[in-house]
Structure formats: structure tokens, C-alpha cells
């Protein structure tokens, strides 16, 4: 995070310097031409640029200098041919066996893969893709009130469907009121219950995270949620019917 912050900080600084330089370049040159330092400008530029050129040239050559070493000679010995053929066959069968073991890691039943960067999902049954489409995941907004803060991000990793509900009711948490600039009602207050907002179905992933429907279909494909995964009605129905309790949901 620090590195990214630094990069953004310096890149904006770099941008602004570039902008100012381009804007005032004419005046700068005119002023400079009147001074005696102008005569020494090429020398100054040379002194300033040379170290960086030197560094990058060195790094560039460093990566390629091993060209001067001849490549490794393959001294194949004919008497090893029988042994080699045996070992090749062994290696091929080992590759097939290892690939099978790797394929066996993929769940045989249905599972869901969600890409939270592009807000897309893929529904699989074994190695076969059944459906793909767009969804909405966490917005990465960090909402800060006077004494609390919430980060609206979708959890990454391997999760499991822990529950399934038809016609779910949304019990609005505190942040839903704070985000809208409304006073937070007490627990169990009628204003906390919202019907129809989550669509026809909801699949629970634990810790309050759900896969559910949405009224705001124009936002599908964008990171706009508070951590839940929103789908359109048809995709949600297909997923609801395909996944069972315990099915895996991979989010990255």
C-alpha cells in the first residue's frame, strides 16, 4: 500500500511538473538565454542525465551480457538410448498420472467462480462451464462515521454456500442508514426490514455475505455493493438451483 501511495504521489507530482514545464518552457528558455548559465546548459544536462543513462545502460547490458558464453552443449550418448526411452515413457505416464490427480482437485459437483476485479462470474459443473455473466461485488468504499468504519469489500478465497433462502428479506444494518445520512433506528425497528430488495433468492456465504438479486440492474458489472454479490434474476435462479448447501464459491 505504501509503495502504491508513493507511486501515485510522485506520479502526480511528476505530472504537475511536466505540465508546468511544458506551459512555461518558452519563457524559461527565453530567460535562460539571457543568462551566462545558458552557455553551460548542455554541460549541466549532460551531468544530470549521464548517471541515469549509465545505470539503465548497465542494467540493460547486464541482462544480455551472457550472450558471450556459448550455449550448453548437449553431449547425447548413444549407449543410453534404451535407458532414455524407458525414462521417457516413465515420464509420460507420470505426467498423465499427475494431471489426473490435479483434475481430481476440481469439485465434481457445481461450483461458482467470481472475479471481483472485472465483476464477472462463471458457474461450473466439474470441468464444464455451465453459465457465465456479469455480477456486482464490493465497492472498496471505506465508510467512516465518528466512531466506526466499514470497508465494503467482497471476501476473497474459498467460501461455501451455508444457506439458501427464497424471497429473502433484507435486515438493514447500521451502515445502511449512516451511508444514507439517516438516523440509526433501534434493533428490530420496522424500518430495518426491506422486502424485495434482494430479489427472489439468496445464498448465504457466512459472516453476513450473500449472493442475491438486485433492483439496480444497470450497476451490474460494476463494483458497487457493500460486500455481497449481486446477480440478475435469470443468473441468480440458475445459480440457486445449481448450487447446494456446501457447494464451493471461489472469489478472487
Amino acid at each position: 500500500m505504501d509503495i502504491v501511495f508513493k507511486i501515485n504521489k510522485y506520479s502526480s507530482l511528476f505530472k504537475s511538473i511536466l505540465f508546468v514545464s511544458v506551459k512555461n518552457i518558452k519563457n524559461f528558455i527565453l530567460k535562460l538565454a539571457q543568462t551566462s548559465a545558458f552557455k553551460k546548459l548542455p554541460l549541466l544536462v549532460f551531468v544530470l542525465i549521464t548517471p541515469f543513462l549509465f545505470i539503465f545502460l548497465l542494467l540493460l547490458i547486464q541482462d544480455k551480457i551472457l550472450y558471450i558464453i556459448p550455449p550448453v552443449k548437449l553431449n547425447y550418448q548413444a549407449e543410453m538410448e534404451t535407458l532414455l526411452e524407458k525414462q521417457k515413457q516413465k515420464a509420460v505416464s507420470q505426467i498423465i498420472y499427475l494431471q489426473q490427480r490435479l483434475n481430481a482437485k476440481t469439485p465434481g459437483s457445481s461450483y461458482l467462480i467470481i472475479n471481483s476485479s472485472t465483476n464477472e462470474f462463471k458457474l461450473f459443473s466439474g470441468l464444464k462451464e455451465i453459465r457465465r455473466g456479469i455480477c456486482s461485488t464490493g465497492s472498496y468504499v471505506q465508510l467512516e462515521s465518528d466512531n466506526q468504519k466499514w470497508l465494503f469489500k467482497t471476501p476473497k478465497g474459498v467460501l461455501r454456500v451455508q444457506g439458501k433462502t427464497e424471497n429473502p428479506v433484507w435486515i438493514k444494518p447500521d451502515w445502511a442508514f449512516i451511508e444514507e445520512g439517516l438516523p440509526v433506528p433501534p434493533k428490530g425497528h420496522y424500518s430495518r426490514y426491506e422486502y424485495g430488495t434482494l430479489g427472489d433468492y439468496a445464498l448465504s456465504l457466512g459472516n453476513g455475505y450473500l449472493i442475491h438479486g438486485t433492483l439496480y440492474k444497470r450497476f451490474l458489472g460494476m463494483p458497487v455493493t457493500h460486500g455481497c454479490v449481486r446477480m440478475n434474476d435469470e443468473d441468480l435462479e440458475k445459480i440457486y438451483k445449481s448450487l447446494t448447501i456446501g457447494s464451493k464459491v471461489y472469489i478472487y
Binding site: 500500500m1 509503495i3 502504491v4 507511486i7 506520479s11 465497492s139 472498496y140 468504499v141 471505506q142 465508510l143 467512516e144 462515521s145 465518528d146 470497508l151 469489500k153 449512516i178 451511508e179 444514507e180 445520512g181 439517516l182
Partner: peptide, 20 residues
């Protein structure tokens, strides 16, 4: 990298519905 690992957007809680 030149992009954020987590593109967090910081937001202060709005005072009222107009600000929200």
C-alpha cells in the same frame, strides 16, 4: 505495481440525505 492492490475509496459518513 503502479495500480493499487485494493482500490479503497475513503468516504466520510454524510450528515444528511442531501449530502448522501
Amino acid at each position: 505495481s503502479n495500480i493499487e492492490k485494493e482500490p479503497v475509496i475513503y468516504m466520510k459518513a454524510p450528515k444528511d440525505t442531501i449530502e448522501a
